[in-house]
């Protein structure tokens, strides 16, 4: 699936100074409800998995069955879009072998628990994650200490962590560095901040913060609203 690399939403990082997030760092994807945060994060996950990296998907809202089914649907659409034939399902195997889902239901999520779970993966399964996707964390109700904890976890496990954050149409707060709600007071902890916005029939993914680079390119990339793959337009 060579074409995937050129169509991955992470193509947006071509405009980034380091071209990647990098181990020990946090990234956040901000979007309003229903725009496709989870779908976009799953495309990020595919990007990692198809590069044969180990990925942990941390779900704070849904159980593993739903997460798996979301991946399956996204992968079917992806395979169709890239014209992958049934017999060439090496990629499906890569997903199954290199992805671990950790779900935390009913407010069970704590940094210490995540740390212990990751340690168990490393020690008992020799599963050393290169990247974590953390989906469903409520930025409004979560204390800064949790984000600090995530940053520490990223450093300890030498992994990069991608989060999603829910924004609201009616909250227009933006800090002096141009970072909007709900990340305006946390931007120092994130190396990359991206925003997903619907524009007409397309979705645009923009980079708002790029590591320590003070000049961030304003241009985003356009994503197909169904597959969340980058379009050439």
């Amino acid at each position: 699936m060579k074409d995937f690399v050129s169509m991955s939403p992470l193509k947006v990082l071509e405009k980034s100074s380091r071209k990647e997030l990098g181990p020990g760092n946090l990234a956040v994807l901000i979007a309003r409800a229903g725009v496709g945060k989870t779908a976009c994060l799953i495309q990020v996950a595919f990007d990692k998995l198809f590069r044969r990296e180990k990925l942990v998907h941390v779900s704070l809202e849904e159980g593993p069955e739903k997460v798996t089914s979301y991946y399956n649907v996204m992968y079917s659409d992806l395979a169709r879009a890239l014209d992958v034939k049934d017999g060439q399902d090496e990629h499906r195997m890569l997903i199954e072998r290199n992805r671990m889902i950790l779900a935390y239901l009913h407010q069970s999520f704590e940094i210490e628990r995540l740390r212990a779970n990751l340690k168990n993966l490393v020690e008992n399964l020799d599963f050393r994650p290169d990247a974590l996707i953390v989906d469903g964390l409520d930025f409004e109700k979560t204390e800064r200490a949790v984000f600090d904890g995530l940053k520490q976890v990223a450093g300890e496990f030498e992994a990069e962590i991608w989060l999603s954050a829910l924004s609201h149409r009616h909250i227009t707060d933006v800090n002096e560095r141009g970072i909007p709600y709900p990340c305006q007071q946390l931007d120092d902890l994130f190396s990359l901040i991206l925003q997903l916005q619907p524009e007409g029939s397309k979705i645009v993914l923009r980079l708002l913060k790029d590591h320590d680079n003070p000049t961030v390119s304003d241009a985003g990339i356009t994503l197909d609203p169904k597959t969340f793959l980058a379009t050439n337009k």
Binding site: G63, E96, M100, I101, A103, Y104, F109, E123, N124
Partner: peptide
């Protein structure tokens, strides 16, 4: 007991797909 269970499954040629924390 998560670690113990994971290890026991791994030793049995098992492939762990998920782990859910609830309470």
């Amino acid at each position: 007991f998560q670690g113990n269970v994971m290890s026991s499954v791994n030793q049995r040629r098992g492939m762990i797909t998920s782990s859910t924390e609830d309470g």
